[in-house]
């Protein structure tokens, strides 16, 4: 059952329909085909990594969303290294793989996909010694915001305000992908901002929560828009608001929580990191290679096909952001009384 959780969690991401920002070519070519001419350009940094064999560690199972993003990016960057392979090291909610990556060799040969769990696991206290300072972030690659979603034929809620007001007098059941997981914390964050309380119901992955919502067993889910997109399109579910800074391109009519007066911007993100003691010039060169790969048409098309949003941020700002997120989630976890040990 754990596998299913991890898969469903990851799938959540793969499902997102939000179109990617760039002007991507709509032609249906295979994502694996393009972008191996990156090796032609001369390295700009002081180190040459073209003879390095790079292993990308994904802290979740193969076939999930995190895995898909990493494989797509590795494919787009394959011309810049001697070779590049993707390795899955799942377990303990992502802690296993990230700990492995944090303790790896510092020559840039092991690049780890770091995700929002880097902050949430530590906030929860089940990080097994994992902390974000063990990493030197290279860049953020993509992100997705939480979307408050209810049944389309639910007359009680037409707007987020309805939902919040209703929750103040009644018990609403809000489903998430797992207790302490990002969507749980996102829903809790909204409740905290709005001064109300939800009854959080944790599932093994977002799919279970959505199924229960479709069956009318709970009132709402707070997962990413990607995960509910197909049901919104078929008219079975509706999104009340998204916890993003700006409205999503796929659903321009749906307001953000900020617009509704609840300042909650919460969601998941993924990026790349190397051990903290990696030399700066190696990190710079990795940033150059991977940001080039992330802006390649092949990767853009891949991300559009898998419905992921590309959201690039450089290493130092990414590092600052992770620190802020940790603080935010630590506060939330304390409010929720979820802290372990």
């Amino acid at each position: 059952m754990k596998k299913i959780t991890a898969l469903a969690l990851a799938l959540a991401m793969a499902l997102s329909l939000t179109a990617c920002g760039g002007g991507n070519a709509p032609a249906k070519s295979t994502p694996a085909a393009g972008s191996n001419n990156a090796s032609g350009s001369a390295p700009a940094g002081s180190v040459d990594l073209s003879n390095l064999s790079v292993t990308c560690v994904v802290p979740y199972d193969a076939g999930g969303g995190t895995d898909a993003v990493m494989r797509g990016l590795a494919d787009a960057a394959k011309g810049s290294f001697k070779n590049i392979t993707v390795e899955n090291r799942s377990g303990a909610g992502g802690a296993t793989g990230m700990l492995y990556g944090a303790q790896a060799k510092n020559d840039g040969s092991i690049v780890t996909m770091i995700t929002v769990e880097l902050a949430t696991l530590e906030a929860m206290g089940n990080n097994a010694g994992l902390t974000y300072t063990q990493f030197k972030p290279i860049m953020m690659v993509n992100s997705a915001a939480s979307a408050i979603t209810v049944k389309a034929d639910d007359d009680r809620f037409d707007t987020l305000e309805d939902f919040i007001e209703y929750s103040k007098t009644n018990k609403v059941q809000v489903g998430n992908s797992g207790i302490g997981a990002i969507w749980h914390l996102a829903a809790a964050g909204l409740a905290k901002t709005a001064g109300t309380e939800f009854n959080h119901v944790g599932y093994d992955g977002a799919a279970g929560a959505i199924t229960d919502l479709l069956g009318g067993h709970i009132d709402a889910v707070a997962v990413s828009y990607a995960e509910v997109n197909s049901f919104v399109q078929s008219g079975e579910l509706k999104v009340l608001a998204v916890m993003a800074n700006d409205r999503l391109e796929a659903i321009p009519d749906v307001p953000t929580c900020k617009e509704c007066g609840y300042d909650a911007v919460l969601g998941t993100w993924r990026g790349l990191g190397v051990p903290a003691n990696t030399p700066d010039e190696v990190v710079d060169e990795l940033y150059r290679i991977f940001s080039e790969a992330a802006e390649s048409d092949a990767f853009k098309e891949f991300m559009a096909n898998t419905n992921n949003v590309i959201d690039i941020m450089d290493g130092p700002s990414f590092n600052t952001m992770i620190g802020q997120q940790l603080e935010l989630y630590t506060g939330l976890v304390e409010d929720l009384g979820l802290k372990i040990g």
Partner: peptide, 23 residues
């Protein structure tokens, strides 16, 4: 569009990569 087990969950991923949405 709801996976019946772990394998079909991956298949949903395979379909979405092709630009298809099960459901």
């Amino acid at each position: 569009g709801v996976p019946g087990d772990a394998v079909t969950a991956i298949m949903i991923g395979a379909l979405t990569i092709q630009g298809l949405t099960p459901g």
